[in-house]
Computed example of a mutant assay.
Amino acid sequence: MKNRTKAVKLGSIDFRLEAVQNTADQQATDIYLYGDVGDGWWGETIRADRVKELLQETANNTINIHIQSYGGDVFEGITIYNLLRNSKKTINVYVDGIAASSASIIALAGDKLIMPKNTQFMIHNPWTYTWGNANEMEKVVAQLRTCENSIIATYMEKFVGTEEELRQLLDAETFMTAEEAVAFGFADELLEEPEGKAEPALSVSARLMNKYGNEPKPQNRQESPKDERPNPLQNFINIFKEEN
C-alpha cells in the first residue's frame, strides 16, 4: 500500500543510496537516503533490503543517516525504521532538505534527529489508489485505517502532544519547520551554523552605504556674493535714463 504524499508535486529528487566514509570522523559512516521510498516505476528507489546491506557492510559503530525524500511506500518506510531502530550502532539522522510522508517515519529511527533551520518535516494520513466494487473499496478503507494506526504508533514514540492532536496534524497534511519539529518532539535539535563562519562579501553599494549612509549631510554652501563689477549693458541703460 502506498503512502505517497501529495507533496510529490513539489518536484523530483535525484536518487542517491550509498554509504561513504565520514571525512571528519573516521569512526563514522554517512549513509545518504535521497529519493522515493519503496518500489518505483520511474527509476531507482530507497529500499529496505539495500539499507540492510549497507548496515551489514559498515564496520563503523556510528552511522549518520542523511535524508532528502518526499516519501513513498509506508511499510517500506516502517521496515527501514525498524532496521535502523534495532541496529546495535549509534544512529544519527540529519534532514538535508525535507523528510516527508514515509521518509518522516525513517527520520525518527535514530538516537537523535538533527535538522538545519531551513529544512522541513511533513506528516499526513496514508492514502492510496484503487478500483473495484463497494466490497473491495471497504476492504481498502479498512486497510488504510490499520495503516494509519501503525503510523500513529510510530509517531507517538516521540510526539509530545496527545493522540488526538497528532491526528489533527495528520488530517491537515502538516509541513513543519525545523523549529516546529523540535517543539513537537519529532526532532531533537537544530543544526546551528558553525562559529567563525566568514561573513558574506558586501556589494559595492552596501559598502558605500555602510560608509556614508549614516554620516551627517554636508551643510548647504553659502551663496557666493554677487559679482559687484559694473555690467556694461547696465551702464548703458543708466546713461540712457539720465539723458532723458
Rank of each mutant, 00 (worst) to 15 (best):
T79K: 15
F121C: 14
N86R: 11
Y129I: 08
A103I: 02
I91V: 15
M156I: 11
Q143N: 13
Y94Q: 10
A142R: 13
K112M: 13
F75G: 01
V74A: 09
S102A: 15
I78W: 01
V160G: 14
E136K: 04
C147P: 00
G110N: 08
N149K: 14
Y81R: 09
N64W: 04
S102W: 05
L83I: 03
K112P: 03
I91S: 10
H66E: 05
Q68E: 15
V95Y: 10
N86G: 11
L113W: 04
S101W: 00
I151P: 00
A153Y: 00
G110S: 10
T58N: 09
K89H: 10
A103N: 09
I98E: 13
T119F: 03
M122C: 13
I105V: 15
N118Y: 09
K117W: 02
N64A: 05
T130H: 09
N149T: 07
N149C: 02
A99T: 07
K89N: 04
F159P: 03
Q68R: 13
I91D: 11
Y94P: 01
L108N: 12
G72A: 00
D111C: 07
T62K: 15
N82R: 15
C147I: 10
V93M: 12
E148L: 06
E138R: 13
N125E: 06
H66G: 06
G97E: 07
M115F: 02
K117C: 01
N149G: 08
I105L: 15
A153W: 00
A134F: 04
E76T: 08
N125P: 00
A99Y: 12
I98N: 03
T119V: 10
T58E: 07
Q143W: 00
I114H: 12
L144Y: 02
W127A: 06
I65A: 12
N133M: 10
G110V: 03
H124A: 12
R145T: 00
N135K: 15
I91Q: 06
K112L: 12
T58F: 05
T146G: 02
G97T: 14
K88E: 09
E138A: 14
N133F: 14
Y129E: 07
L84A: 11
F75Y: 15
T154C: 11
N82S: 13
Y81S: 07
E76K: 05
N60E: 14
P116A: 06
G132V: 12
V93D: 14
D73G: 01
L83Y: 08
N64H: 13
L108K: 14
G77V: 08
G71H: 05
A153V: 00
G77P: 02
L113K: 12
V74C: 03
I67A: 12
T130C: 03
E157P: 03
H66Y: 14
V74D: 02
E136S: 11
V95I: 15
G72I: 01
G161A: 12
I78A: 08
I151W: 00
Y81E: 02
V74M: 15
G72L: 02
S101H: 02
Y70Q: 10
G97W: 08
A109F: 12
G77I: 06
V140E: 10
K139G: 03
T154L: 13
G71V: 13
